[in-house]
Amino acid sequence: MIGNVANTALYLRRRAVNSLFIALSVIAAGFGLVWLAFILGALLSAGIEGLSLSVFTQSTAPPGMEGGLANAIVGSLEMCGVAVLLGTPIGLFAGTYLAEYGRHSRFSFAMRFVNDILLSAPSIITGLFVYQVIVLRMGHFSGWAGIVSLMVIVIPVVVRTTENMLLLVPNGLREAASALGAPTSHVIKAVTWRAARAGIITGVLLAVARISGETAPLLFTAFGNLNWQTDLMEPMASLPQVIFNFANSPYEEQHALAWAGALLITAAVLALSIIARLLEGKKRN
């Protein structure tokens, strides 16, 4: 009898603790999602308000004059595009080395470690590095300096996904191709790369998404430019940098442009991530 009473009390307590825990985790989920919805909501309403045709057709202007973001959009596209074009092959080959040539070597072990540190190191450090190495040497800010700092961010991302994707390719495929007499380079090109293609493309898209929002490394490499500029040897505007400068300015119309730019970047990043996810999902099926 007494045992039963004690048991009932124990059950009640366990049930209470459990309900409390379930309530707390539902609240946590709600809390998190509400904030994130808040941010996206604010971004949508203020961003759409700031959008207009002139955002895409005119360059940034001094306060008081009508302007847009055309130079920043083009600068972002140009710098991100070149950084990805140059960074992807390097990352692809380095990742291939890790997965195909030196899978178990000590050098690869150290390289993986270093690569993962670079992957999550603060991006402002990248900016300082490129400033020291390129901007000081050249004597001025330039689009190329911006590109190099973005490349430093792209390469580790591509290395990581390439290696991961190549490791998923079954060894039987490589062995079959080698047994047919194909040289190693041909095995890699025609068999393993092809088998891992969707995954690698996903990684590259995620790298593009990552650098298109990077601000810190561009501030003291590409610096920014109020005028239309496509020459990579010159200082160059980019969307994140213009957002940073305009949001900190005291003028309403510049705030509106900053919001419009923020909406454009978020839309681009989300679209890239969704495309990447669809590709990945297709492969899985």
Partner: peptide
């Protein structure tokens, strides 16, 4: 949705 949000650049959080 949560994974997508993890990819939103930090400048967006800053301006918000």
């Amino acid at each position: 949705a949560i994974e997508l949000l993890a990819g939103i650049p930090s400048i967006i959080y800053g301006i918000w």
